[in-house]
Computed example of a mutant assay.
Amino acid sequence: MNADEIIKEGKRVLEVEIEALTRLHDALGDDFVAIFDEIIKKRGKLVITGMGKPGHIAKKLAATFSSLGTPSFCLHPAEAMHGDLGMIGPEDTVIAISYSGESDEIVKILSNIKLIGATLVAITGNADSTLAKAADLVQVLPKFDEACNLGLAPTSSTTAVLAYGDALAVAASKEYGFNDADFGRFHPAGSLGKRLILRVDDLMAAGSRMASVSSHGLLMEAIKEISKKRLGAVCVVGKDGGLEGIITDGDIRRAVADHKDIYAVTVNEIMTSSPKRTHLGALAIDALVQMKDQNINCLPVERDGELAGMVTWQDIVGAGIVA
């Protein structure tokens, strides 16, 4: 095929799958609501199974449900026949995916699922199939063509089931009141999760690592503190422990350029009074956005009016958070 023919074929596949999704969209009704109600009862786990290509969809959907607040796992039907049925309990809900409803590996475990006492939900394209007849709840998919040029390989059908499962998972998470904090707890290693859970408390320099000097000290003391702590700035602290100002390495360079006597000038002559700041408990991403917007490199962190630490943009970006 030449370039035009390749693009034409690609568009044809997308058009067929879009048509399948449109038909699915229009077909959603009482069956979707009934399956949704079953899922949110949350008596036990949600088990999703399928063979072949639907099995891959089952894995993805189990992961999506779990990440959005519905405990779920994927069960391989062939492994189920060799002991993995023990993973299912009577309080669980099993979603079995088979467009034909006659997949041999699925059919062979249906009676055992019923014996265990789990609720069986079928997602199929065949209302008269063995799977549909055995299930407690059934979603019959509308008729549509597979996008495969042979009309054989699961393409439109797996896309439709994937979208259907996503719709259930998202709707369930909304019903639970699942929020960004919940999402962050389930995604601690990803960049999205870090943006939602990492706070300045987790990243700031505090205690002996924090750079600070007395408001009555000399500039030379501030220079030594900046050099020692390597934060690029030093906080100026009053007698009451409150933040009175900040001196950056840029302030020091300007003082030297202006021929200031760094051994005689005091910090309060050089410092920026009432500097920008954040507070303990603030999200790291919010602190990074603040620094970016205000064109600064660090932020003092306060707790109840007292200096608690200092966080730099390097600390936040180094933790994998990008504004």
Rank of each mutant, 00 (worst) to 15 (best):
D304N: 15
A206Y: 14
G165N: 06
A3K: 15
K133I: 02
T93I: 15
L203A: 06
D251P: 03
A169Y: 13
G50F: 10
I113H: 03
A20D: 07
L307R: 09
V13C: 03
L24G: 00
G125W: 12
D249V: 09
D84N: 11
G250Y: 07
T272E: 04
A160D: 01
N297T: 14
K60M: 11
K292R: 15
R230T: 03
I39K: 12
D286K: 15
I109Q: 07
A147L: 04
G193D: 14
P77K: 14
S214V: 05
K114W: 07
A167K: 08
V107H: 02
F144C: 02
F32Q: 04
T130Q: 06
I7A: 12
F186V: 11
H56T: 08
S227F: 01
G232H: 07
G318Q: 08
R185S: 08
L28E: 02
N297F: 14
S273N: 09
A284F: 05
F73Q: 09
H82L: 10
Y99R: 14
N295R: 15
K108T: 08
T93L: 15
G10T: 09
T70K: 04
P275F: 07
S215G: 02
I7M: 10
K42R: 15
W313V: 14
V322K: 13
V267C: 05
L162G: 02
K229G: 01
A134I: 04
I97F: 09
M291V: 11
L120H: 04
D240W: 00
V107C: 06
G165K: 05
T155F: 02
M1Y: 11
R230N: 12
L243P: 02
T70L: 05
M310S: 05
I246T: 05
H187S: 03
D202H: 09
A169P: 14
V33F: 05
L168Y: 09
P71Y: 10
R253G: 03
G69H: 06
T278M: 02
M271I: 01
N126K: 12
D4V: 05
L283D: 03
A96V: 14
V213N: 09
V200S: 04
E306M: 12
I116Q: 06
L152Q: 07
M220P: 00
Y263K: 12
R12Q: 08
I35K: 01
L137C: 03
L168C: 09
S129M: 08
S214E: 11
D293L: 11
G184F: 08
T64M: 14
I113E: 08
L131K: 10
G69C: 09
C235Y: 00
L68N: 10
I6W: 03
K59Y: 09
L120K: 09
L152P: 00
T119L: 08
V121F: 11
R23K: 15
K260S: 04
A3E: 15
G151Y: 11
G241L: 10
H216V: 13
